[in-house]
């Protein structure tokens, strides 16, 4: 699933490790989510959204809308 995680992270000058620590997950998880290799669960998606103070839709692109972009 496409997402803006890398951009949002770069805006805050966070490394993948920094974001992983804040989300209490492994760096591998952050990398997998960022590159779209892994779709996070709803609780983790909410956690990410709350960390960046955005809605889930502002971070993750719905798969049904990916072709429209």
């Amino acid at each position: 699933m496409k997402n803006r995680l890398k951009v949002l992270r770069a805006e805050r000058d966070w490394s993948q490790g920094d974001l992983a620590d804040r989300l209490e997950v492994s760096r591998q998880s952050v990398n997998a989510i960022e590159t779209g290799r892994y779709d996070p669960s709803l609780p983790l998606a909410f956690k990410i959204a709350e960390l960046f103070e955005l809605s889930i839709e502002q971070i993750f692109t719905s798969p049904s809308k990916e072709n429209d972009q």
Binding site: V25, S26, S29, Y38
Partner: peptide, 8 residues
């Protein structure tokens, strides 16, 4: 394991 990606 709390990390869902690693568990997966």
């Amino acid at each position: 394991e709390t990390d869902e990606y690693l568990r997966d």
